[in-house]
Simulated assay, not measured.
Amino acid sequence: MTQRTLQLSNNRAVHYLERGIGEPLVFIHGVGMQANAWYPQIENLSADFRVIAVDMPGHGKSASLDAGAGLPQFVEWAAEFIEALDAGPVNLAGHSMGSLIAAGVAVTRPDLVRRVAVLNGVYRRTPEARQAVLQRAAELRAGTIDVETPLRRWFNAEEAQQIAAVRVESWLRSVDLDGYATAYTAFAKGDETYADGWHDIACPALVLTGSDDPNSTPAMARQMAEAAKHGKAVVIEDERHMVNLTAPDRVNRALRAWLQFEPHEAIIKSEV
Score class of each variant (00 low, 15 high):
Ile82Lys: 02
Leu85Val: 05
Leu134Phe: 01
Phe74Ile: 04
Arg153Lys: 10
Val118Glu: 03
Val147Ala: 08
Pro89Ile: 06
Ala138Ile: 02
Thr126Ala: 11
Gly121Phe: 01
Ser99His: 05
Met97Val: 01
Phe155Met: 02
Met97Trp: 07
Asp111Ala: 12
Leu119Trp: 03
Val118Trp: 00
Ala78Cys: 15
Gly143Lys: 03
Val118Gln: 09
Pro110Gln: 14
Ile101Glu: 06
Ala138Leu: 09
Ile82Asn: 03
Arg125Thr: 04
Leu92Cys: 07
Glu83Ser: 13
Leu140Tyr: 03
Gly94Trp: 02
Arg109Thr: 11
Ala78Met: 12
Val122Lys: 09
Leu151Cys: 06
Pro72Thr: 11
Phe81Cys: 08
Thr108Trp: 01
Leu92Val: 05
Asp111His: 05
Val90Met: 04
Arg125Phe: 13
Gly94Asp: 08
Ala142Ser: 14
Gln73Tyr: 00
Thr126Ile: 02
Gly88Trp: 07
Phe155Cys: 06
Glu76Asp: 15
Ala138Arg: 13
Ala87Thr: 12
Val116Leu: 09
Glu159Gly: 02
Val118Ala: 08
Ser99Gly: 15
Gly121Pro: 06
Glu128Asp: 14
Glu139Gly: 15
Val107Phe: 06
Phe81Lys: 07
Asn156His: 12
Thr144Ser: 14
Val116Glu: 11
Pro89Tyr: 10
Leu71Cys: 10
Arg115Gln: 12
Gly88Met: 06
Leu119Arg: 03
Ile145Cys: 11
Glu76His: 13
Ala67Glu: 13
Glu148Val: 10
Glu83Gly: 12
Glu76Asn: 14
Ala93Asn: 02
Val105Asp: 11
Asp146Arg: 11
Val90Ile: 07
Gly143Met: 04
Arg115Pro: 09
Glu83Leu: 10
Arg124Val: 10
Asn120Phe: 10
